[in-house]
Every structure is written in structure tokens, then in C-alpha cells.
Nucleic acid binder design. Sequence first.
DNA 1: GCACAAATGAAAATGATTTTCATTTCCATG
DNA 2: CATGGAAATGAAAATCATTTTCATTTGTGC
Lengths: 121, 121
Amino acid sequence: MSRSNPRVLSTLERAGGFASAQEVYRLMQREGESIGLTTVYRALQSLVNDKIVDVLRRDDGEAIYRLCGEAHHHHLVCKGCGDTVEIEGGAIEKWAKSMAEEHGFREVGHTAEVFGLCSKC
Amino acid sequence: MSRSNPRVLSTLERAGGFASAQEVYRLMQREGESIGLTTVYRALQSLVNDKIVDVLRRDDGEAIYRLCGEAHHHHLVCKGCGDTVEIEGGAIEKWAKSMAEEHGFREVGHTAEVFGLCSKC
DNA sequence: GCACAAATGAAAATGATTTTCATTTCCATG
DNA sequence: CATGGAAATGAAAATCATTTTCATTTGTGC
Ligand SMILES: [Zn+2]
Ligand SMILES: [Zn+2]
Ligand SMILES: [Zn+2]
Ligand SMILES: [Zn+2]
């Protein structure tokens, strides 16, 4: 079940910041690790399921992954350079909760992301 | 230069909310309009360049478009039956804005969705 | 009509991601 | 040590959105 291949995780760690599946794969190849692209994809998916890594989308649509702290949080992403800041989401937690209550929903979750251009772009 | 095909624009309008290029194309086909997929892609790109249309990414990576300035809103979706309610997003608008300001971001947008189980499920 | 630029769209190419499926690696049990 | 089944692996094929190519059509001024 847990296909969270540790070599993939450690490579993603080493990559620092965000990396796509293809990039992780190429990196491992360059470092002489023997692994298949399929396994990299599966490992990353698994890590996302286990909430060990975060996944986002680059502007061109390619999925990018990175290690993520345990705490639930949200991102502010720059559309220009891809820079990402973790932001505090207290307000949104309350909002989601109250909207759900108001409409009689239970077991509520949410997604939220803010994007724009950072000061450097 | 301006390939902002008016038929594509009007279809996107009619679609309401977000639609992908493929969806716009299928919609036009269903309505008996004769148009090529390539033209739909080119028209949407052009509309984005002219800032008439916004582009975002769905979770699966597909690009989705919507008219700029169309009433912005958020959804509460039931994981069980798929029922969807439009919810009021004032709190989240403020949150996104203040987070962006705090980190010096401009031209800010956001996505947010709440999901859970409705009272019937 | 004629020339020439822009628009169109079918088909091929691209590139990320997923699926298939045969093979290999693990692991528990005899 | 087998050995048998389950999980993991990866090469190759399939999928699917998007882009590119290129031949054809359309529009516009002369
Ligand atoms: Zn930036
Ligand atoms: Zn949250
Ligand atoms: Zn429901
Ligand atoms: Zn909003």
C-alpha cells in the first residue's frame, strides 16, 4: 500500500523547494540511482496521499511537489517566478466552518490558494 | 493579430463560470457551430492576452477560462451526492487580499472550495 | 479578377501522466 | 532451504490536453 519510496522522498528533499516528477526522475538518474519513471510518479502520489508532500501546478500545468510541514496551511504563489509563501489561514478555517454549518454540511474540508505577482516580478 | 473569435467568447459567456477549451469546443459542437479545436485554443489564448478572460488550472492540470469580471463566487460541494451550493465569500476575499498585501503581492486572485457531506447524505 | 495577408482547421507532434502487464522482490509459512 | 502468493517495479503502450505544421480558405484593398 505505502509506496512512498524513501529514495524518492530523499531526492525531493535534496532538490529543495518544488520539483516535478520528471525533475526528480532526472535528478535520480544523474546521481546514478536506478529507478523507473513510473515508480517516481507512484511514490509522489503516495507521498501526497500520506500528506507528506504538497502538490501544486506550474503555470504550464506540470505538477510540482515539495515537502510540507504537518500543520494545515495555505499557499500564496507567485504566477511569475513560482515563489511560494506559506500563509496563515485562520480566517478561512472559520469561514469554511460557518458556511458548512449554515447549510447543514458535516465532515467538512476545504481547499484555498492565493496567487499573484510577487514584489520581484 | 486579434484572434479573439466572438463566437468562442459568446460560448464561454453562455457556459457560465469556468470552462476548459475542450468544454467550450464540445459545447459549440453540440450547438451545431462549425469550428475547429485549434481555433478555440487560439481564441482563448487571445482573449487571455487581451485580458478579457482569466485562466486558472483545475486540479487535474487542465486549463480553465472564464470571463474577467464575471460574478466571483465559491462553492460548497457534497462529497456524497455532488450537490452544490453557492456560498458567500466576503471573508475569504478579505483574507486573500490581506495575505497578499502582507507579502507584497499584486494582481492577486484565489481559489477556494469547501466540501463535505450534506444533510441528506 | 488579383495579390497578399490573416484566419482556419485537420492532422501530426509534443509532453506529462496513467495504465498495462510481465517480471522481480519480499515475506511468511512449512 | 523451498515455495507460493502479495506487493513493488519498470518498460512500453495508451491517454489526453495542448501546440505546431501546413495546406486551404477567407477577407480586403486595388
Ligand atoms: Zn515572483
Ligand atoms: Zn485551511
Ligand atoms: Zn449529499
Ligand atoms: Zn473569492
